[in-house]
Write a protein that binds this DNA or RNA. Structure first.
Length: 548
RNA sequence: AGCGAGGUAGGGUAGCCUGGAGUACCCGUCGGGCUCAUAACCCGAAGACCGGAGGUCCAAAUCCUCCCCUCGCUACCA
């Protein structure tokens, strides 16, 4: 039995996450956590709202409320949304808490004491109207190369060139639209990753053997090969944890730092004592789920901070990076209430449908395309026709032939079933989640083909007069019921509600465990079985089309 | 522009590290079977110059080089 600590990239607390965000980290992490719990491992799953950062601050200004008010409101909304999707975190916390502040400061102070923070000065744009510093992206104007007007301080979207804010012609502030910008000398503290790069490289080379994606390993190593540079970990703004040093009264610690350490702070919110048993215990396997856009924060910056602080915090064991779920036809939107996001999606279909179909399309190694067609196909043909229908036909036929059903049925010894279960477990062990869900489908396919091959409905008719037929049909029913029951268990990480429904026909009321796969079963066929999945209706399809 | 990943039947994927006949899976299509089940299920077939061009090799989807396309990162978007 291992000790596992699972994290999913923290959703920002200024908008409703869209389906791409969900399938990129929180959902696969939840699926994996449910599997580990099922296996009986000591596994905790922490996630939460990332509350700091400029976007939250700006959204608060726009809404006319304090950033902490907006961030806490959104936190509650997002937390409830995840509950609707049957995500069962050990703790879903947030980053703007005293617990997190404590951990952030202890790491920050040690980095400072150990000589890994470099003070450096720079010229930073300042808006006289808004009376605030502007991040590079908040400066807009004309591109010095292609002369298009929509260039931003970091990059021109038109010609794609990387820019410096001072290069922008006719700059104006993206917040107020005015041109009252001046450049002011500022100082920031930078984490000297250059001093740590040898150790970080060693760590990645060694640890990436634990099922890291090719993309995550190679881009991290290639970045190190090019040479790591000091990276600012403070910002000149008000929303965030103040930098605990004299001379930095107007600065806060950068959102990414409070976010990465937020995983720890959130664990501390969960349990003020036990958090150390996970985070400062070399036997804990830290499994981090995240999208491809923020890999290096987890592979380079967190390891750098953890090493530099020398506080014994663990480094990631596995980086489970996802690519992106994209859609040419449907609008995924980050803005409030617009587009197909976690809030609007759950109003159309229940949690099981989204959980299963999104995991079926999980962009594990490459971007994958989400479309109405793909969703309908997955729900209707895979979930409903293959899995749901198998359960239904087995249970109904069994119920109408109750006299031919054994009271107690041993777990099937069919080697094909054993192989599929092994494949499922091996896939999870290697964090190959698409392969794992594929094994579930395979088991249903096997059940369906056994049904067609052996035609138990024919044998059942002959059973009264034919002892041999009776013996055969009893065996087949046992086999099929065993498969149906096992299917109920394997479904649990993906579709917890359907799993519970299916297992209820076997008198199981508790959450399933892997050990139960080998248990003897006692079918309960008192009530009429109801389909565990349904096809997508025209009405639901129409609701989806609203977002095309 | 540099770096990383991806490009495989009509659609979606696996295979690539460690070369062995384009091998496999799902959807869709076509043909057959079944009638227990939610018009569901099962079996079979057709369908691919494996992004392009070179190279290495007895043999390349797989290894090497160059090119094209998509996505991500490039250190103050987070």
């Amino acid at each position: 039995m291992g000790r596992y600590l699972i994290t999913a990239a923290l959703p920002y607390s200024y908008s409703v996450p869209h389906l791409g965000n969900f399938v990129g980290s929180v959902l696969p992490a939840d699926v994996y956590h449910k599997y580990l719990k099922m296996r009986g491992d000591d596994a905790i799953y922490v996630c939460g709202s990332d509350q700091h950062g400029t976007p939250t601050e700006l959204a608060a200004i726009k809404a006319g409320v304090a950033p902490e008010v907006l961030a806490d409101e959104m936190h509650e909304k997002i937390k409830k949304l995840f509950e609707k999707y049957e995500c069962t975190f050990t703790y879903y916390g947030k980053t703007n808490t005293p617990e997190n502040k404590g951990v952030v400061y202890s790491i920050f102070n040690e980095l400072y004491n150990n000589g890994y923070l470099l003070e450096r000065e720079d010229m930073q744009a300042y808006c006289n109207v808004d009376e605030r510093f502007l991040t590079d992206r908040l400066i807009e104007g004309t591109c010095p190369y292609c002369h298009k007007r929509n260039a931003r301080g970091d990059q021109c979207d038109n010609c794609g060139r990387l820019l410096e804010p001072a290069q922008i012609k006719d700059p104006f502030c993206a917040i107020c639209g005015k041109s009252e910008i001046r450049f002011v000398k500022t100082k920031n503290l930078a984490l000297e990753l250059n001093k740590l790069q040898g150790d970080i490289a060693k760590f990645i080379k060694k640890t990436s053997k634990n099922n890291w994606s090719k993309d995550a390993v190679n881009k991290s190593l290639s970045m190190i090969k090019e040479g790591l540079k000091p990276r600012d970990i403070t910002r000149n703004m008000k929303w965030g944890f103040p930098v605990p040093l004299v001379g930095y009264e107007n600065s806060v610690i950068y959102v990414w730092i409070t976010g990465l350490i937020g995983y720890i702070g959130i664990t501390k919110q969960w349990d003020s004592k036990r958090w150390r048993d996970y985070w400062q215990n070399e036997h804990t396997q830290l499994i981090q789920f995240l999208g491809k856009d923020n890999t290096i924060f987890h592979t380079i910056i967190w390891p750098g901070m953890a090493m530099g602080s020398r506080l014994g915090f663990i480094l990631p064991h596995t980086i489970k990076e996802s690519q992106f779920l994209v859609s040419k036809t449907l609008k995924f939107s980050k803005s409030h209430g617009v587009g197909l996001n976690m809030k609007t999606a759950i109003e159309i279909l229940g949690a099981d449908y989204w959980r299963f179909s999104l995991m079926y399309m999980y962009p594990e190694n490459a971007d994958s395309e989400f479309s109405e067609r793909a969703l309908v196909e997955t729900v209707n043909t895979i979930m409903n026709d293959k899995i749901g229908n198998l359960a239904q036909r087995v249970l109904k036929l069994s119920k109408s032939n109750r006299s031919l059903i054994e009271e107690e049925i041993p777990s099937t010894k069919d080697p094909k079933v054993r192989r599929i279960i092994k494949e499922y477990e091996a896939a999870f062990d290697k964090l190959q989640l698409k392969k794992a869900i594929g094994a579930v489908v395979k088991l249903a396919e096997l059940g369906n083909s056994i049904m067609s091959d052996r035609e138990p409905w024919v044998l059942a008719k002959n059973a009264k007069s034919d002892a041999k037929a009776e013996r055969q049909v009893r065996e087949i029913f046992s086999e099929l019921l065993s498969i149906t029951y096992q299917l109920g268990i394997l479904l649990y990480p993906f579709t917890p509600r359907a799993s519970a429904e299916l297992l209820s026909y076997f008198g199981i009321r508790s959450e399933p465990t892997s050990a139960m796969l080998n248990d003897k079963i006692r079918p309960k066929l008192d009530s009429d079985p109801k389909p565990i999945f349904q096809k997508i209706t025209d009405k639901e399809t129409e609701s989806l089309r609203k977002y095309s």
